[in-house]
Nucleic acid binder design. Sequence first.
DNA 1: CTGAAAGCGCTTACAG
DNA 2: CTGAAAGCGCTTACAG
Lengths: 337, 337
Amino acid sequence: MRPTIKDVAKAAGVSPTTVSHALNGKGVVRRETVERIERIAAEVGYRPSAIARGLQNSRLGLLALVIRPLHSLDTFLPEGVDYFLRMAGAASLAALDRGYSLMLIDDPTRPDAPLSATAADAYIVTEPFENDPVLSMLSERNIPFVSVGSDPARPGQFFELATRDWEEALLVLDHLAAAGGTRVALLTGTDQNAWNRESQDAYLDWCARRGQTPDLAAFPEVEGEGVGEAAAERFFGAAGTHPDAVFCLTGRHAAGLNAAVAARGIRVPEELLIAAGSGAIQNRMSKPSVTTLDLHPEGIAARAVEVAVLLAEGRPPEGPLEVPTATLDIRESTTRA
Amino acid sequence: MRPTIKDVAKAAGVSPTTVSHALNGKGVVRRETVERIERIAAEVGYRPSAIARGLQNSRLGLLALVIRPLHSLDTFLPEGVDYFLRMAGAASLAALDRGYSLMLIDDPTRPDAPLSATAADAYIVTEPFENDPVLSMLSERNIPFVSVGSDPARPGQFFELATRDWEEALLVLDHLAAAGGTRVALLTGTDQNAWNRESQDAYLDWCARRGQTPDLAAFPEVEGEGVGEAAAERFFGAAGTHPDAVFCLTGRHAAGLNAAVAARGIRVPEELLIAAGSGAIQNRMSKPSVTTLDLHPEGIAARAVEVAVLLAEGRPPEGPLEVPTATLDIRESTTRA
DNA sequence: CTGAAAGCGCTTACAG
DNA sequence: CTGAAAGCGCTTACAG
């Protein structure tokens, strides 16, 4: 059994109050008493319980990061999705910087969630789903939180870092057009989040403005590169007109398509341009390498942590609630000789 | 003020005990009472305090990961050090899988550490320093922990996942020799950890066995690729005999050297072989790409979490306490035509 | 300078 | 079926 403050008090022949005072440098305790208590505490291996302490002000100095799309992914490894790993790492560091710890947690609404999942001072929820129960729960219980991207069904209802899905989609689409694309198709994921929605709407709008017939398909995020063949079949299987450029939202879909079209003898970038709305590591390394948007997850994480800390401390968030602007990493897949 | 169980009890006209029973499905409470209490709890936005609950069994379902070398790094980003990010991400997921959350924390011995830093059920400490105060503190206070790699001054004294620094060093050295290296130099970091130590000892032993004169240098991990020029000067600046192969422990040092020797007109791999003892992303992408050891941080993390969970639950760890074996990713820097 | 008491927000025997 | 009481391990007025 781990020793408590009582054990130390007993061993030192003083009251728990005095032990507390002595060990925390509060109140007034005679120097010798302090030293004796410190010695005894060390001897018995006493460590104050952070949980008991936390009970006083109900703050642990703990932030939680809930990466919603993690549920749709089979892996968290960098081979899979660069974005989340960079985000989680950067968020952890940003939290350390501000005197907090950050934990990555699964859905805290699950009945079998560990106690820790509900012990955070504030929450960061990235890419909430439509009518996301996590946001509902946090909101109902008055737990401070900030989301990255809005709940598609409830935009503007909570503290959220506005993403720039629409303008980022246009950035890629315009680049594809500038690179020579005339029939640009869109390949989205199937998660019901703002990113998929907004990108699709931006695409439809862009097509309408250009007088182009939209050509879009959706495949599950979870299948990653595995959708390559199906996507290739979808776009190039039937006779008739085929796209000469594809905008894949996820880097993994782009990587899969990139490989699948190569197998069909379609040359990238000569016959087909490919660009992705977020980067996976393999996009930089593939032959040809694939143009991707860099969403700067580190910057997003830093800002989210900043806001979360303010909320945790009961202060209003300062500055504009938005993510940094994305930049385009132009690679071989959209660079014609 | 956030509502407590008392508020709910008062509003429902019952005792806190009954609220507790009703909300947790314990004891025997009339169905209607349960429903009324649930309704009222929802109305007032009641959320049970995880901290108060945790006080009962002093367990939060929380694991802490302390990445010691983080102190010597200027960045945690993947451009910097692939290894730790992959480790942290994989550890987080492994923890989720077992019903725990995992937080990345800074040195928990710091007096200004947040409460959370000492609230974990068990700790994972990677690459402890010599006489690491973190290990001392955890050990003194009987807090369960497992280290990845041993404290160089106290090997075998605590639960630790044995690393294979020695055999991994030989793997790289033998590969360099097989690839044509005859005068193999070593470039280590300056942190006082087992990895630097063991690798150096293995190198000296290997040189002795081959009758080669050792040629070794150490540069700070924190400087990363920045050491390239200084390392190139160190190995190739003076007249006389120069190495024809360099084993850099860190991927970032290798990347820096790779670039610096190119600037001097030294061709890799024709005139100089380079290999690294751990991978950074740029090693895969550089021209030429650089051969690295893949330490499989995901496997290490999974095993560390497994052990940490057992210790947190007061059970003895099962199976051999060691990390998975590393594999060599052979790339252009050690492949002569 | 020291300590008894109350309290942080829960849970859990135990008694009614 | 319900509740008063004790307790988890601390801290903090407050009284001596």
